[in-house]
Amino acid sequence: MTTTDTTVLIDHELSADLAAAALSLARRFQAGATLWVVSPQWEPHAHHVAVEFVHPVIMGKRALPSVSLVEADPVAQCRVATRPGDVVLAVASADQPQVRDIMRRAPAWGADTVWIGSGPRPEHGAATHILWVDSADPMIPATGRFVLMYHLLWELTHVCFEHPGLLKPTADTCTDDGCVTCGDEGRLAEVVAAPSDPFEGVLVRTASGEERVDATLVGDVAVHDLLVVHGGAAITRIGADEEVW
Rank of each mutant, 00 (worst) to 15 (best):
L167V: 04
I235A: 04
G125D: 02
L25Y: 06
V70N: 13
V75P: 07
L89A: 15
L188E: 01
I116E: 07
T113Q: 06
G231E: 04
R105D: 09
D197I: 04
S196K: 11
G231T: 02
W245D: 12
V228M: 09
Q98C: 10
V192G: 05
D5E: 12
L23K: 07
P107F: 03
T143Q: 11
P107Y: 01
P44W: 06
A76I: 03
A16L: 13
I140V: 15
L35W: 02
I10S: 07
H48W: 14
G219I: 03
E52H: 13
G232N: 01
V202S: 04
D220K: 11
L188K: 00
R100K: 11
A90R: 05
P169A: 00
A16C: 09
V75R: 06
E211F: 09
S39T: 07
V80G: 10
V133W: 10
G183I: 01
L153S: 04
A46M: 08
L69I: 06
V133G: 09
Q41L: 13
P138S: 01
V192P: 03
T216I: 10
A33T: 04
L23Q: 08
I116N: 05
V192C: 05
G85K: 03
A111S: 11
P138W: 01
A16G: 13
H230N: 08
V99N: 02
F146Q: 02
A26F: 03
D225A: 02
D225S: 05
C182N: 05
D95H: 12
S135D: 11
A92I: 08
Q41G: 15
S68I: 07
H124D: 15
G119Y: 05
T173L: 15
S135T: 09
P169R: 00
V159G: 09
A81M: 11
R83Y: 05
D220M: 13
R79I: 12
A240F: 07
A240C: 05
D241W: 07
T4N: 14
T3Y: 09
I235H: 00
H151A: 15
V87N: 00
G32T: 03
V80K: 13
T82N: 06
D225N: 06
H47C: 13
E71H: 11
I130C: 08
S135N: 09
D95W: 10
I238R: 00
P195Q: 02
A26H: 00
S135Y: 01
T113N: 06
R145Y: 12
